[in-house]
Write a protein that binds this DNA or RNA. Sequence first.
DNA 1: ACGGATCCATACCTGGATCCTG
DNA 2: CAGGATCCAGGTATGGATCCGT
Lengths: 212, 212
Amino acid sequence: LAELLLRAGALAERTLGELASALGVLLPDDPRRGKGIPGQLIERALGAAAGGAPVPDFEALGVELKTVPTDENGRPRESTFVCSIAALEIQHEEWESSRVRKKLRHVLWVPISAEPAELAARRIGVPRLWRPCPDDEAVLRADWEELAGLCGAGAIDEISGTRGRFLQVRPKAADSRARTFAQGPDDTTISALPRGFYLRACFTARILKGES
Amino acid sequence: LAELLLRAGALAERTLGELASALGVLLPDDPRRGKGIPGQLIERALGAAAGGAPVPDFEALGVELKTVPTDENGRPRESTFVCSIAALEIQHEEWESSRVRKKLRHVLWVPISAEPAELAARRIGVPRLWRPCPDDEAVLRADWEELAGLCGAGAIDEISGTRGRFLQVRPKAADSRARTFAQGPDDTTISALPRGFYLRACFTARILKGES
DNA sequence: ACGGATCCATACCTGGATCCTG
DNA sequence: CAGGATCCAGGTATGGATCCGT
């Protein structure tokens, strides 16, 4: 853990362009074409496990890595994706064993300034290792239980991004025509837009400021 | 059904090259690079539903399409792939509702001479619409129950291609390093090579000769 | 001769997220 | 300004099968 923090701290003040050339990665000119690049560069720089596996980024430590784009004042510009929703299985899940809780038990946050827009010039900030305090976990749990409850009750299409105080449900798909199978009313199955859990920017702002 | 047979019959004696140019498809020179091309050309020529969906090729008719490569005497040169094995779910399946049985309930067989090797010169043969007779279905069922039973009991890695009289289990993967999750002994989960069900050539030979 | 190994394409899913318009 | 829409990569699954070494 100490080593992870050291290595992450050593990235602060460097630009993504420096990181990319050190790793031999070519950056796209248009940032819209590389939405996931910052996160993947930091993963590689810190030796995180590569995608796919259902394990934390730093498995031995149980630590998840999240990069977050900030404005010039260090405030998050965006919400943070947590995980996708398995819309047929969530009705059988409980908060204690949920994917959201697992992802958020221990997180290394790495802020990255989104000014300027050009990927190569964006500058990495000071990382912060975080665990939710009991009060925050209580809110996350309440949000999760409300949202997961709606999904499990066949009301996934009734959920809008306005629900939830820290945690929200929003689309997570290639486009709005994408479809997955979801729980419908009364044990039926419906076709629905794939969705995921996200942390609101107001919550991650508190984390980055050290108020959580 | 009559129309399907008419259209399939109209393909007999034509070459894959003729079909490909009629459909605007470019054939690879090396047949090893186009193992699935003959089947896909026939699918398109007959207006079968394209891949992906868990439905028969001709859904309204409940008919599955299978092409089979033959030697100069019309004997199958290869076994015929039926379907992949969902190695974690097969323990809950029964023959009556199995994917193998669904696929084989009603099949339009289209033989295609594999001489010469060059794809464009291969000639389509006379199609045959087939349903398994009760005796054959009894053998298929016995084979399936033996093989599926082994999978469900966590012995998928014990199955070799020698088991089964008409139906066998063989690898179905990009290569031998591919892995999927499978049922292990005593409710454990193991990592195993993906496998599929295949019909032996001795069985499809009888079908093509009209002896089944 | 045939059992194990392999080839191609498409779709879906997850994980990395940010874009953008009303 | 934030909820809905979207972008990319990589892995897995399935469906179309045939290749090839022992």
